[in-house]
């Protein structure tokens, strides 16, 4: 059992990084550094690879397989799937935001210009929940 600690460390590191990231999405410092879970999976895979090379036994090989799968999935998700292409936004810092009217959750119209001279406005565009 004592010789299984690299395998155990590898599994805890890779699974922990992925589960921990999603569990701590509300913490900006965690959420805004998704590359960290990819890095943790890479480290976990390196540990399992060295352990498997020294002793090709099932705990080490299983840890290698788990960390490799999580590294590929996590890397694809972070570096490919979650990428947002650059946009030609018409907004410019220092220029007026074009006015608009949209309905709120009760259906009442809300106009950007109605806040003028009253309070600053923060617009948060988000993808929605589907």
């Amino acid at each position: 059992m004592s010789r299984s600690w690299p395998a155990l460390l590898s599994v805890v590191l890779s699974l922990g990084a992925v589960v921990g990231y999603f569990a701590l999405l509300r913490v900006p410092a965690i959420r805004n550094h998704p590359a960290l879970y990819v890095l943790a999976c890479a480290l976990a895979m390196a540990i399992a690879a060295v352990a498997s090379w020294r002793a090709p036994r099932w705990p080490n090989l299983t840890a290698l397989a788990i960390s490799a799968v999580l590294l590929v999935l996590g890397g694809y998700f972070n570096f490919v799937f979650a990428r947002v292409p650059a946009a030609g936004t018409t907004l410019r810092v220092g220029e007026a935001a074009p006015d608009f009217t949209l309905s709120d959750a009760t259906g009442a119209p809300v106009t950007l210009a109605s806040f003028r001279d009253r309070t600053p406005v923060v617009l948060v565009f988000y993808r929605g929940y589907w």
Partner: peptide, 22 residues
Amino acid sequence: PTTVVIDRHGIVRWLKLADNYQ
């Protein structure tokens, strides 16, 4: 995903577009 800060005169003062939606 975009955040826009607009001042009392309707001028954009701060702007951040996501390049990774996470």
